[in-house]
Amino acid sequence: MSTSEAIRADAARLLAEGRAKLVIGYRARGPHRAPAFVSDPAGVDVLIYDNLCKQNLAVYLRKPEVRSRGPVAVVAPPAVMRSLVVLAAESQLTEATVLAVGPDAYHGVLDLAGAAALLKEKYADLAPSPELLEALAKLDAMSPQERARFWTDQFAKCTRCYACRAACPLCYCARCIVEKNVPQWISTAAAQHGNFAWQIIRAFHQAGRCTLCGACEAACPQGIPLMLLNLALSEEVAKQFGEKPGYDPAAKPVIGSWKPDDDQGFVR
């Protein structure tokens, strides 16, 4: 049985048994892959899975329209499972039902603990792509002035459409800081000052949380290489705190917790 067929069978069973009222998976739209929302066991035939399925479907769990449907099951490659684990660690969800897929195999229906165990067992060493590592190394090798110019050029393109935020499962604030205007923390204009503030704040709010799923960069209509920022922060967190988010549903948030042996070298 192919992965797609296995997913359909499990989805139909979950829906028929009432364990899920809604299954979120992937469907084909021409050569593209779009999200599929299936609530009827008879409708599972649209579900497919292949290596073109890239969107992080965990993002839908924050939508009231989705949550109000009752228990939801999500077709989850490792990136989606890691997002769910972080959401659980941040008390955004208490349980999850996933149809766990890996690049190599289909792992069946799992709960949150099962997903976390699977991640640790089989997907503990998900490495960023060589291209991304190379691009970051190139950036690191730049002088501060060159790097500033690089980001100035990149951020200049930002239209403030907030697709990066919308695509990220971990950007779940009911009211984002860019939309708070008493006081106006961040300039609303899609121009240098506000764009820098927005981009830096977005990245910093992800520090120690981002699982490097790539949804934000894939969503950016302007082609801004957001993963360079995410990866830089992520490597810094790993170096400073030895933490890799998205594996332990009981993990304390890196930036929201304190340990006596945390590096305090920055305190002068």
């Binding site: 329209e65 697709a163 919308a166």
Partner: peptide
């Protein structure tokens, strides 16, 4: 509309493009 609303993430990408 309800079906479209489920999948839409609510960003401004389409309108700005």
């Amino acid at each position: 509309w309800r079906d479209l609303g489920l999948a839409c993430l609510g960003c401004g990408s389409c309108a700005y493009a």
